[in-house]
Simulated assay, not measured.
Amino acid sequence: MQTDVRSVRAPEESARAFVYRVLSTYIKEMFLHPGEKLAETDVAAELQVSRTPVHDTFSRLEREKMLRPVPRGAVVPPLNTDMIRQTVWMHRTVSQAVLGELYNHRPTTLEPLEHCVAAELEALQGGAIIKMARLHLEFHRTLYSLAGREPVIDVLERNSGDLYRLLRMMESADLWRYVAEQHSAVVQGLAMRDYEMAAHALEAEFDLVKPLLEECRYQRPYFFE
């Protein structure tokens, strides 16, 4: 495990919170690949903390299914294809309901969503593909927030770890530009009170996941179970 700026501990951050933040981020962002093994002693030495917060973090990540216990450590689990498909179905279904709420109870401003799209386009222009999965997540969180449904997206995100890791594997700028275009169409549809336009754009975005999953499973079968 090689550390970088994300591994810098904030002055007010407890050792346990620090270790959890680093490991969960590394797993979600695919800096730690599926199948990679971690040992508590190595992580403690790398992050310059005692073994106790590392042990506690391993236990927490195992409960959250981001690590699997193995003798003398833990391993980053492979992506579960069935879970990804189920997660996409949940997002697709609930997002349509959220769009309906935004259509019936139009928010006072769509600027937060517009800022999300602008951030995506800026990242693409700068070649920062690595940011796109996180910006994609921020767009959907903002969409739910405008509808007052933060608790719903909280639940969805807790079950979306493998979907997020899959999106981190999408390295095509053209595909991410297509996603940004669909997000822009969602905003435009909401602004014009055109539910069908917004709903179609979200459907088009979710439709990308199936071919992406198939391509990634073909290119890196050892990342999946």
Rank of each mutant, 00 (worst) to 15 (best):
L135T: 11
W176V: 01
L61E: 00
A191D: 14
E205G: 02
D82R: 12
Q86S: 10
P78E: 02
V19P: 01
A201D: 00
V155W: 05
M192T: 13
S7C: 15
A97M: 13
L61G: 04
Q188C: 10
L124P: 04
T41S: 14
H33M: 13
L156F: 05
S14F: 03
R6I: 09
V54W: 05
A185F: 03
N104K: 09
P151W: 03
M66R: 07
E215C: 11
F223N: 07
R60A: 04
S184W: 03
E111Q: 15
V209D: 00
V22A: 06
S7I: 09
T108V: 10
G127L: 05
Q188R: 12
R217S: 11
Y103I: 09
T93Y: 02
E13V: 08
D174R: 10
L110A: 03
A123L: 05
T81K: 05
M169P: 02
H55R: 15
I27A: 01
K131T: 10
R134Y: 05
G127N: 11
V155Q: 05
L190W: 06
H183D: 06
R60S: 11
E62V: 10
G161V: 05
R141I: 08
K131M: 14
A180T: 02
H183C: 02
E12R: 12
M83I: 00
S24L: 06
R141H: 07
Q86D: 09
F31K: 14
L156C: 04
F206D: 11
T3C: 10
G127M: 07
G189M: 06
M90K: 05
L113G: 02
V49C: 11
A118E: 08
S145Y: 02
P11A: 12
V43Q: 03
E181L: 07
D4R: 14
R134F: 09
E138K: 13
V75L: 01
V8P: 00
R193M: 08
E46Q: 15
E214Q: 15
A191V: 05
C216M: 15
Q86M: 04
A45M: 09
F206M: 15
A173D: 01
R220Q: 09
L175F: 04
G73Y: 07
D162H: 06
R21C: 09
L38C: 02
I130R: 15
H200T: 13
L202K: 02
L163M: 14
E203F: 07
T41D: 12
Q182D: 07
V5R: 14
W89K: 08
R165M: 06
H33P: 00
L32F: 06
L212W: 13
E111L: 15
H140L: 14
Q48H: 15
D207W: 06
T3F: 08
F224W: 07
L79D: 04
L213A: 08
E40G: 07
V5K: 12
E120R: 10
A199L: 01
A191T: 11
L213Q: 00
E120Y: 01
E120T: 08
D162G: 04
S184T: 03
Q2A: 14
E114T: 08
E46H: 12
R85Q: 13
Q188K: 14
Q2S: 12
P11G: 10
V94C: 05
Q48C: 08
K37D: 08
V94R: 10
Q96P: 01
N80Q: 09
S59H: 09
L175P: 00
